[in-house]
């Protein structure tokens, strides 16, 4: 049989302090991202912030600079541009109603009427010898944005509670704690990545984050199940060597299960088109960090909580 890794004997638990430092930094960035979202300084997508987005497909390739010039000479300022050069598409994002053109009425209760038309008009004027196809228009009023933010918050709370209940029911306390810490760690790490790279934090990222939260447990459960199983047989072994042994025993399946999902996510990233681009990126990062955390976060937390004795003494 082919084996990615032969039977290993790595002392994972010894490296836990390095892992704690790395994970601490990752989680901290994630927490900063949440603070920034709450304060409204993060790069929120228009689905949360409200605003207008227009995606157009050009017949001939254009540069973002040309697009910006075309928009600005026609009086549209402050646009965020996103480029998909391989398909000659550009996404023009104008956040929050009423700030981009001088003549617009300052009505904040609804979406800015006609802004998307102005964008399309500006591009048609700016690129007279280029054919422009409007792929999509999204206009989101502040009220909808607010509702989507509230819904998103509830979704996060509901999934957290759901996962906590399930994990708490299936495992004894130290394991539930480890699994929970690892799950939050993974979500925070991916969110933090999107925050510091300035990528948009939107509904589709939230979907990816919740999916990661659900998936994060897959690898953790595999390790935990083996620890539990070994606990019943190897009564006298110390906790850290028991955890090490278990992780080493299931290391290949931990990596392979992640690998198959990673393959699927990479396919999405490369071929999924601009709509799923960020989603796929989040999934790739999520799978990687979930694999890392199942070894270096979840189990060490169990160890930390239980102390370096044997499990049997604990109960």
């Amino acid at each position: 049989m082919i084996e990615i890794i032969k039977r290993t004997n790595i002392d994972f638990m010894k490296k836990r302090y390095i892992a704690f430092a790395v994970s601490g930094v990752l989680s901290l960035i994630g927490i900063l991202a949440i603070v920034a979202i709450a304060r409204g300084t993060a790069n929120l997508g228009i689905d949360f912030a409200g605003g207008t987005a227009v995606q157009v497909k050009f017949d001939k390739a254009v540069t973002l600079h040309q697009v910006r010039t075309a928009l600005e000479t026609n009086g549209i300022k402050g646009a965020d541009l996103q480029d998909f050069p391989s398909v000659k598409k550009v996404m023009i994002v104008l956040k929050k109603a009423g700030e981009h053109t001088s003549s617009s009425t300052s009505s904040t209760a609804s979406i800015e009427k006609g802004l998307s038309d102005k964008v399309i008009e500006a591009l048609t004027k700016g690129f007279p010898d280029n054919k422009i196809i409007v792929d999509s228009i999204s206009e989101i009023g502040p009220k909808v944005g607010k509702r989507l933010r509230v819904d998103a918050l509830w979704a996060v709370i509901a999934s957290a509670i759901g996962i906590l209940i399930y994990v708490g029911w299936r495992f004894q306390f130290s394991f539930s704690l480890g699994a929970t810490v690892a799950t939050f760690h993974d979500v925070l790490a991916v969110l933090g990545f999107f925050y510091i790279t300035g990528l948009e934090i939107n509904l589709i990222l939230l979907t990816a984050l919740l999916t990661i939260a659900g998936y994060s447990l897959t690898d953790t459960v595999v390790v935990f199940d083996r620890i539990r199983e070994n606990m019943k047989v190897l009564l006298k072994e110390s906790i850290d060597s028991l955890i090490n042994r278990s992780i080493n025993e299931v290391l290949s399946r931990t990596l392979i299960t992640s690998l198959t999902v990673l393959l699927a996510s990479i396919a999405l990233f490369i071929f999924g088109g601009e709509v799923l681009h960020d989603f796929a990126l989040a999934m790739i990062l999520g799978v990687l960090v979930a694999t890392y955390s199942s070894i270096f976060v979840a189990s060490p937390v169990v160890l930390l909580w239980s102390g370096e004795k044997t499990f049997t003494k604990k109960h």
């Binding site: 979704a155 999934s159 399930y166 919740l210 659900g214 897959t218 199940d225």
Partner: peptide, 19 residues
């Protein structure tokens, strides 16, 4: 079962709150 149930939980939440 354990490894899939949690994914199902978040999927159910997304179904409830998602557009």
């Amino acid at each position: 079962v354990d490894s899939h149930v949690t994914t199902l939980i978040t999927a159910a939440v997304l179904f409830q709150f998602g557009t």
